[in-house]
Every structure is written in C-alpha cells, then in structure tokens.
Design a protein around this nucleic acid. Structure first.
Lengths: 193, 193
DNA sequence: CGTCTATTTGAATGTACTCAAAAGCGGTGG
DNA sequence: CCACCGCTTTTGAGTACATTCAAATAGACG
C-alpha cells in the first residue's frame, strides 16, 4: 500500500520537507478492511481519522426503529471519521463500515495532536480540510431545504458518480432522506439510468 | 464598540501576545448595521467574514419562486459568512441580513490571508472554528434525516433559545425546512410555549 | 390610525411513507 | 455448478404528513 496518494492529498494544500514527510508517515497505520467490516461502531470510542486509499466507506446514524441515515460516503482520496466524537474523544454516534474491500490509513487523535505541535503546517492543512467539509455540508443542507427528492437524487448522481456505482439504492435513499421504495418509484417515473 | 468579546473568542483557542493582538485588531472593521439591512446580497462578491459583537444576523438561500431557506442564524460571539463564496471569492449564493440592530467586526479575505501568514496561530484558530462549524452542520443533517418536524422544532428551541427569541416563526420554519403554516399548526397541537 | 407582514385556521391536495407481496440478484454451501 | 437463502428492488394500495391556497386575525411600525 503505497503512500503516493495520501502525500499528494497533503501536497494539494501544504508542502513538506523530507523529515516532515517521514514523521507524518510514521504516524499512519495502513489497514486493509474487507467488505461489510465495521471500522467504528456506535458507542465505541472514535480514536482515528481515516484516509481512504482505495475502496468505499459509509458513515451512518442509527435512529429509532433501526432506521439508518447515511451521513457520508468516502471513496479514494477522502478523509472520514465521526468528527464530533473524534475531536472530543466521546463514544461514537456514527457507525462506519466498508461498502467494498478497502485500504486506508488511520491516524490516531493523539498522533494528530502531536503532528499539530511538531509540524504546525498541518493546522493549515486540516483548516482547509475542515473548511471544505463545512462548505460541503452546508451545500447539502441548502439542497435538502430547497430541492425535491428527485432533484437531490439527480444531483447526487452527477456529483458523486463513483459513489453511486458502488453503493446500493437503499444506501443512496438513506443519504437523501427518503425510503428505498420511494427512490425506486422516482427512478421508474423518470426512467433515470 | 469594544474588543473584549472578540478577543475572548480568540483566546478560547489560541493565545496572542500584545503585538499579535494589535495586528489582528488593525485588520478588523467595526460596523453597526440596523435591523433589516443587507450585509451580503446573493450575486455580490462575498469579501468578508463577520464576527457578531451584538445583535442577530441571518443567512438564507433564495430558491425558486421566492422560497427562502435559512441556512444559519448568528448571535453575539458567532462568526458568519457565505463560506463557499468567501473562500473562493465567488458571487454569493446566500443573502445575509440583520434580524435586529447589530454590531459586528468584519474581516476581509485578503486580510485574513495576511493574518495566516503573519500569525500562523490563526490557522489553528480557524481550523477549530471550521471544525466546529462542520460538526454543527453534520449534526443538523443527522437531525434533518432522522427526526420529525416537531422534534426538530423543540430541539431548535432548546439549542438556540436566544435565537428563538429574536427571529420570527416564519424564519424558524424556513430554517427547519417546513412552511410557516405547518409550524403554526405544530405549535397549536403541542401548545408549545 | 392605517398599512404591511406575520400568524392562525381550515379545506383540499400532493408528496412521501407504511405495509405487503413479488421479483431480482448475489453469495454460499452442498 | 446449481439451488437455496437473504437482502435489495420493484410495484401497488392505503395512509399520513406536510403543502398550497385562501381568508381571517393579530402584531409591528411608520
């Protein structure tokens, strides 16, 4: 599992010298997970933030009556964790599972904190990562408030075509906030795809 | 308009020496705005991020057929802007108005960029601000996906009691993603407040 | 005081859900 | 390799939640 992708991800926003790169890499724990395996379970302590090197992960919230709400999908080159519980080291609200066999790098909270101290440039890096995540979530809220289920679905397909190929309709429905049955009828009406 | 509140806001996450404080303050532009005045209009370039010193602001998205969706409210001690358009210096998607007479400090994008260079600790500060904003938006998405309109309303009241006192029901409804008529019947059913 | 907007109320409608059952698809073991 | 099992997807009928439209009332502001 090579480190080119994650280093390129970092290099998008900050430049590191050789020592800094080595130190950063020394903190990462590569991991291969198979389809359906659970990386984080609701209630567990959320110890790491994950960078997806290959594959697809899904984070969801389990509401009343076993109703799942998909909070995010992550494909290659994405960071994913239960941010609230990661930052505050609280029991997770979210469950994170592998949608397909995946490879990731995990970074522990305490190691990230060390990284911030030793290489403050990473404050900048994660400032930008958080900023983008915030903007993305806000855009999603705007869409949820202002668009119909059908429009949200077609937007999802065009914005995340790779994700759409990997995950089930049921999972997409739970991301959009509608039932799988209703998504099915939407597709039938529009003859989408 | 004194600077204690904003300095305390900063001090929650980083500590500055005298020079750094002075430099930071030199970049701020205090501004008093009266009720209903428009700080940012959809389509305009979004040049600043705003810190609310006193009062209440509201950011909303204008969808089809004059339907407003409230994206966020900001009361004293909050930062608010159209983040996407601020960061990318694009025409605003959001409109930001004063719900009541308010006092704020504005910080221009180019000055924030200078601040990052001169006082890198601010990378940390805004990393934390962005992180919190991301977490908050994600929580809102979870609620939108998993709770009923009534539950979201009661949560809103308990989470943002100050905001709830300042804004109209119509504005709250547009934040929750329901019509004002429906919010009115919810309140009647529950005899809430 | 008069005007404008917000809020309430109610009736009719539509969007999305629940429940149920059938069909499709993928994975697994005999 | 096929048969079966479990889960996903489809389809449909009936229902509930939330909207639209309309009109009356209440509040805020000049």
């Amino acid at each position: 599992m090579n480190t080119e992708l994650i280093l390129a991800n970092i290099a998008k926003h900050i430049s590191l010298d050789k020592n800094e790169i080595d130190f950063f890499l020394s903190l990462l724990k590569p991991e291969e997970v198979s389809k359906k395996s659970v990386l984080l379970k609701e209630g567990q302590l959320c110890r790491d933030i994950n960078f997806v090197h290959h594959g697809t992960l899904r984070a969801f919230y389990m509401g009343k009556e076993a109703k799942e709400s998909t909070i995010m999908f992550a494909v290659a080159d994405w960071w994913i964790t239960d941010m609230y519980c990661f930052i505050n080291q609280k029991p997770a609200m979210l469950t994170i599972t592998a949608v397909e066999d995946s490879q990731l790098f995990r970074l522990r909270k305490e190691d990230l904190d060390r990284l911030y101290l030793q290489v403050p440039k990473f404050e900048r890096f994660f400032r930008i990562i958080m900023q983008n995540a915030y903007i993305r979530e806000q855009l999603r809220i705007i869409e949820n408030l202002s668009l119909s289920a059908e429009e949200r679905y077609t937007n999802f397909l065009s914005r995340y075509p790779k994700v759409a190929q990997q995950v089930t309709q049921k999972q997409i429905a739970s991301y959009l906030g509608i039932t799988p049955e209703f998504l099915s009828t939407l597709r039938a009406n529009k003859r989408i795809k």
